[in-house]
Amino acid sequence: MSSRLHEAFSIDHLLTDEELAWREKARAFATERILPTAEQDFEDKYFRTEFVAELGALGFLGMHLKDDGCAGAGAVSYGLVCHELEAADSGWRTFVSVQGSLAMSAISKFGFDEQKSTWLPAMARGEKIGCFALTEPTGGSDPAAMDTTARRVGDDWVIAGRKRWIGLAAIADIAVVWANTDEGVRGFLVPTSTAGFTATKIDGKLSMRSSIQCDVVLDDVRVPGEAILPGAHGLSGPFSCLNEARYGIVWGAMGAARSCIEVAIDRSTSREVFGKPIGATQLIQAKLADMLVEYEKGVLLALHLGRLKENGALTPTQISVGKLNSVREALAIAREARTILGGDGITSEFPVMRHMANLESVRTYEGTDEIHTLVLGRALTGLAAFA
């Protein structure tokens, strides 16, 4: 974090020693491992699989869970890790979210003890990778209308359907698949080596290029009866996992915003126009001040939500407030930072356009702006306006 930004705003005095230690571990990894190749990996659409085990060794995977092999860290510690990883690249915060907040959380919350002991320690170490198959090609905002089905055949389940935008599916060992059954929506653990399971990387992306998202086909995939997640009944199951991921986004998006602000501050003091640094002009200072205000509000909101989460008082409505605000303001900050960089701001010499492109994906997944807006509208009026 730049010294000027730290002097203008810091939450260090509001954090515990343990939280600061988690943050510093994540900041070191982001700076020393992710950043040196982030621009080239984005250009090459290259996912560095070697980082997976390193993230596991640092304790970041499923770090908020208390199961065997997991770190059992607090919500604020987890948020700070998301903040630092996304300051380097949204794709790696996304990986941690898919692995820990979605796939591992589903197993932890709803699985048999045997399912937990089989998968969670290995996933926490980064030895096994999971994915979370909920969204379908027809859209992700209405999961109640999912077409994927699971039917009983003897003691087994046979799953048929299609999923889209499933992070990590092409490299995953286990998929948490959500499907409609005679009992309503249920979750299943499906090894990706199972016959009929096919995951294909989605190409042509102009965002999240160094991350992996896939189309998944489930062609009468047969799994044993014990593949079901016994504790998940209805859409409350996947929604509770999505809320874990959304919480991480509240912190993560502000990390991307911080990176853009730092670049803008540096450029404003080093680039000279009309015989003086551009940062000495009122218009540039006004832009920087506005960016700081939104960043500070976003981080303080994230910290507030983290403390609520640790006290068991965080509601889905408040998570929607955080997700909507953080991503929307991070994008606005990125666009303003680009203007301070001038024409050079569209090049890979600076991370701003990469952050901006990635944040467009973050804005869409785990609930679009529109969906979170309607969640808040429903909370305020008591009236649902989703249709």
Score class of each variant (00 low, 15 high):
351 P>T: 10
24 E>D: 15
98 V>A: 13
168 L>Q: 08
164 R>M: 13
167 G>N: 08
84 E>Q: 12
43 E>P: 03
295 Y>A: 05
347 T>V: 12
48 R>F: 07
227 A>L: 02
51 F>M: 08
222 R>S: 09
5 L>N: 14
154 G>S: 05
360 E>V: 08
294 E>V: 03
351 P>C: 05
349 E>V: 11
266 D>T: 13
200 T>S: 05
51 F>H: 14
250 V>L: 05
239 F>S: 01
151 R>Y: 04
122 A>N: 02
366 E>H: 13
223 V>G: 06
17 D>I: 01
328 R>H: 11
368 T>C: 13
46 Y>W: 07
135 T>A: 13
12 D>E: 12
291 M>C: 14
345 G>H: 07
44 D>N: 13
272 E>C: 06
109 K>Y: 11
241 C>E: 12
316 P>V: 06
135 T>K: 10
368 T>A: 15
270 S>G: 11
26 A>H: 04
247 Y>H: 09
310 E>K: 09
154 G>K: 08
273 V>H: 00
138 T>G: 02
319 I>R: 13
310 E>G: 15
19 E>C: 07
127 E>H: 03
178 W>E: 03
121 P>M: 05
105 S>T: 02
294 E>T: 13
64 H>F: 07
30 A>D: 00
281 T>C: 07
308 L>D: 08
381 T>P: 01
93 R>M: 14
57 A>S: 08
334 A>M: 04
25 K>E: 09
386 F>E: 14
384 A>V: 08
379 A>E: 06
178 W>Q: 11
341 L>Y: 00
232 A>Y: 08
386 F>H: 14
222 R>K: 12
263 V>C: 09
7 E>D: 10
146 M>G: 14
261 I>D: 13
136 E>M: 15
125 R>H: 05
231 G>C: 06
379 A>M: 00
377 G>A: 11
246 R>Q: 14
337 A>R: 10
113 D>I: 06
134 L>F: 14
93 R>V: 03
120 L>D: 09
120 L>Y: 05
362 V>S: 08
367 G>I: 04
258 R>C: 12
71 A>Y: 02
107 I>L: 15
41 D>F: 01
243 N>S: 03
83 H>N: 14
180 N>D: 09
279 G>S: 11
351 P>S: 06
75 A>C: 00
40 Q>P: 04
57 A>Q: 10
376 L>H: 06
122 A>E: 12
3 S>C: 01
197 F>G: 06
139 G>I: 10
105 S>P: 00
164 R>G: 10
248 G>N: 06
339 T>K: 11
329 E>M: 14
157 W>N: 12
49 T>P: 02
275 G>I: 03
83 H>P: 03
41 D>K: 02
17 D>C: 00
222 R>Q: 08
211 S>A: 15
385 A>L: 07
272 E>H: 11
141 S>F: 14
24 E>V: 10
202 I>R: 09
61 L>R: 08
152 R>G: 00
57 A>T: 02
102 L>A: 13
238 P>Y: 12
106 A>M: 13
